[in-house]
């Protein structure tokens, strides 16, 4: 293992979870971490977040599932995953070898499903925190996404929080009129932190075939194209709640991380950039260390919410 980067204090704390630096990887963009081992020294990251896990295995959507758009991409993976039981029996072992906190992202069709997944993860060694993806349709409420109705978002949060013994991060959907209402609701529901943003719903058309570019017609937009929207939402939410905020959306470099921290993020997640540069997360950590040293900061925490407004 390589030695830690310089002496810069990059550590941050998320609802009781201590991270040696604020750089996490975003769910669905980092596999189960193992895929990135040839490229990244995983031990240098703040935390890894694994692909979203549901109660039962899901096959996901038909192809094509991804299409590139200007400075971004649309995906309609359809939450393909092996299900919580196989996740625990097949994927946890290699994750336990990762020395940084592993955050398990969960999703469900009903409040009960979320609760049940969280229950099965209790006492599983190596699960440092749970991230709740609430951008999923609530099948009991006509398919309205949990993350778009404050009461539903709060109910899922409370259900997961009640059974979990680790910090619970709630991942917010940007596809709402006022994200601060949802953020407040999940804070009231007991969330230890919020992360945002999930992908923005979008669409692309292939003129030549006159078909939608994705088999699912609509998909989630991610990558540099969404960064301004993400920054705005992180800023608004950080003004609203008192729990830590994890910034996500179009982050590639240490400069991006620092911008999100100024806007109020305590930590960040890197998503789509991992596909382009598998070393993006580690390089961001290196860049943060250089910045802290160059700027003679005592700690990176000085950057959180330090946006100069006047």
């Amino acid at each position: 293992m390589e030695s830690e980067i310089s002496g810069a204090d990059l550590s941050v704390s998320i609802g009781g979870l201590r991270l040696k630096n604020p750089v996490m990887t975003a769910s669905g963009t980092f596999g189960y971490a193992k895929e990135f081992e040839p490229y990244v020294n995983l031990h240098r990251l703040g935390a890894v977040v694994v692909k979203g896990i549901s109660l039962e295995p899901r096959a996901g959507n038909p192809p094509p599932r991804i299409v590139e758009t200007s400075c971004g991409m649309l995906n309609a993976i359809g939450l393909e995953n092996v299900g919580v039981d196989r996740f625990i029996s097949e994927k946890m072992e290699s994750l336990q070898a990762v020395t940084v906190p592993v955050v398990v992202n969960i999703l469900g069709d009903t409040v009960n499903e979320y609760r049940e997944i969280a229950e099965r993860l209790v006492d599983v060694e190596g699960v440092a925190a749970i991230e709740v993806n609430i951008s999923c349709p609530n099948v009991k409420k006509g398919g309205v996404a949990f993350g778009t109705v404050p009461e539903m978002a709060a109910a899922v949060t409370a259900a997961v929080k009640k059974v979990s013994s680790v910090p619970v991060i709630v991942k917010l959907s940007p596809n709402v009129t006022d994200v601060t209402n949802i953020a407040r609701a999940v804070e009231d529901g007991g969330a230890d932190a919020v992360s945002l943003i999930n992908t923005l719903i979008g669409m692309a058309v292939d003129l030549r075939s006159r078909r939608p570019a994705l088999a699912n017609v609509i998909g989630g937009l991610s990558g540099p194209a969404i960064k301004p929207v993400a920054l705005r939402m992180v800023y608004q939410v950080a003004q609203t709640v008192s729990i830590p905020v994890i910034g996500i959306g179009g982050i590639e470099t240490a400069e991006d991380v620092l911008e999100f921290m100024l806007a109020g993020a305590t930590a960040v997640q890197i998503g789509t950039a991992n596909f382009v540069n598998p070393r993006a997360s580690e390089e961001a950590v290196e860049g943060l260390a250089r910045y802290v040293t160059e700027q003679k900061l005592i700690s990176i925490r000085e950057m959180i919410g330090a946006l100069v407004l006047s």
Binding site: F36, A59, G60, N75, I77
Partner: peptide, 28 residues
């Protein structure tokens, strides 16, 4: 040939319909 975002089994974008399970991943 499929549309690939990562090429290393992380994005799950590159599927082809398979008889073993529903989909296989072209890159991995």
């Amino acid at each position: 040939e499929t549309h690939m975002a990562c090429g290393m089994g992380a994005c799950l974008g590159c599927i082809v319909p398979s008889r073993k399970g529903v989909y296989a991943h072209a890159c991995s």
